[in-house]
Design a protein around this nucleic acid. Structure first.
Length: 457
DNA sequence: TTAGGGTTAG
């Protein structure tokens, strides 16, 4: 009895230390406990494993699992659920599946939580068909799906391009014995907004208003962003003001969305005022928010201040990411500082941010705008992947230098590779060829473009 | 375990 009570006390201590992100102290307390004869139990280890998954990584958490086994404490379903959730956060689907298998091998029976997490992992990492198989497996093993199971399915469907299936499932919830909760509403509204089904999203929003659920800051920012995405700025800002009036004054997502919209509108003065208001409200800036403010400074040409903010962000322990670098590279190119932009690109690669298509595009565009189209072409040929932005910049750059035949050739290559450029760029190439006296070539290009659009290559 | 974010052309 005394031992049980003291283990309970040990667990309270470990839990509290883990919550305050003090993993070293939590481990020290466990060691002290063992020395005093108070042995950690499955709850102690589960607490530690979950904290390691959240704060360090799934590999480090797995080390605790070894120690747990060595200490003669048998892992349970909760242990594995935490580990699967950890693998999900890092988008490691094979790892999640292996852990699930390991759980079965250990003779444990996965619960709805295990299935939900595994399904979420597979959706998140781009394997919707496998996620559906897990759902069927869940049913075949007579594990009752919960509302979270359906929320996860609706979310997964929306995020993998099947918002209408998500909506069908949403409509079937009652038949399955559930009524939608706020998470369900927010999930489907976001899915419908993102897939352009604004009318459907509005209908669900109306239903949410008539339900017992109370919209929260997530609902408001979801709808607000939908308005901004569709160019309905006035409506979006009405929602933002409404949010503020309702007391949602400390939501970093809402401020970031509003600041980004103001930048897009070219209203840098109000964007700055919004930043000030956010800071006055004592909102702690996160990485995305810093990036938005850095973007604002770049737009204003305050590149030194932008770099100062990057330092501030790194000193705050947030670290910069591929977005930070792309924003800086774009800002430097706009100011004509191509060498510095190049330096940032190398730093970006050295730091392992390899998805830098946007950064390359900024450089290519910057070089073209400075008339350095040959340097831009050199970079273009070095690029492993290209998109519509790449081709549009380079084709425009060639047109500016009156190299219409090269532009025409690239334009056709672009269509063959499944990319497309703006129709204004098509027109620029055709008009260029015509004005340079190559009327037959212009006619031929026009015909090829028409065929390409019919074949949709 | 499930819901909202940031960058590039014209």
């Amino acid at each position: 009895m005394i031992r049980r009570l003291s283990t309970k006390l040990l667990n309270v201590c470990v839990s509290s230390l883990c919550k305050s992100r003090n993993l070293d102290k939590a481990e020290a307390v466990i060691i002290d406990g063992i020395r005093l004869g108070c042995l950690p139990d499955v709850v102690t280890y589960n607490t530690l494993i979950d904290a390691y998954c959240h704060l360090v990584g799934v590999d480090e958490a797995y080390v605790i699992l070894y120690r747990m086994r060595e200490a003669g404490v048998r892992p349970d379903v909760i242990t594995y659920n935490s580990l699967i959730a950890g693998a999900t956060r890092c988008c490691l689907p094979s790892r999640s599946l292996d852990l699930f298998e390991e759980m079965l091998q250990a003779g444990l029976v996965p619960d709805d939580w295990s299935y939900n997490t595994l399904m979420h992992c597979l959706f998140k990492c781009g394997y919707p068909e496998d996620a559906y198989k897990i759902y069927l497996d869940m049913l075949s093993k007579n594990v009752a799906p919960s509302l979270t199971t359906y929320n996860t399915l609706i979310n997964g469907m929306c995020k993998t391009g099947n918002a209408m299936n998500g909506l069908r499932l949403f409509r079937n919830l009652k038949r399955l014995g559930f009524s939608a909760e706020l998470v369900t509403y927010n999930t489907i509204i976001n899915g419908l907004c993102k897939s352009g089904r604004i009318g459907e999203a509005r209908r669900i929003l109306k239903e949410l208003g008539e339900s017992d659920c109370v919209p929260n800051e997530i609902t408001y920012t979801t709808v607000m962003k939908c308005c901004f995405r569709n160019g309905r700025f006035e409506q979006g800002f009405e929602i933002f003001s409404g949010m503020m009036n309702k007391g949602y004054t400390s939501d970093v997502f809402a401020y970031c969305a509003a600041i980004s919209a103001l930048i897009k509108m070219g209203n840098l003065e109000d964007a700055n005022a919004c930043v000030e208001q956010m800071l006055r409200n004592g909102i702690g800036l996160d990485k995305a928010c810093y990036n938005t403010i850095i973007y604002l400074q770049c737009k204003e040409g305050k590149i030194d201040y932008a770099f100062q903010l990057v330092n501030e962000m790194e000193e705050a322990g947030l670290g910069s990411d591929q977005y930070t670098y792309s924003i800086l590279i774009d800002g430097l190119c706009r100011m004509g500082y191509i060498d510095s932009a190049n330096k940032q690109l190398h730093m970006m690669e050295m730091r392992g941010f390899l998805s830098n298509l946007v950064a390359y595009n900024c450089l290519i565009d910057g070089l073209c705008k400075l008339g350095e189209v040959d340097l831009a072409l050199k970079l273009f040929h070095e690029m492993k992947s290209k998109d519509d932005y790449t081709y549009t910049s380079i084709v425009n750059g060639l047109c500016q230098k009156s190299r219409f035949h090269a532009a025409s050739k690239l334009l056709l290559n672009c269509l063959k590779e499944g990319s497309s450029v703006l129709t204004s760029t098509h027109r620029a190439v055709i008009a260029g060829l015509q004005s340079a006296g190559f009327r037959r070539d212009a006619k031929r290009l026009k015909a090829s473009l028409r065929v390409a659009s019919l074949l949709r290559y």
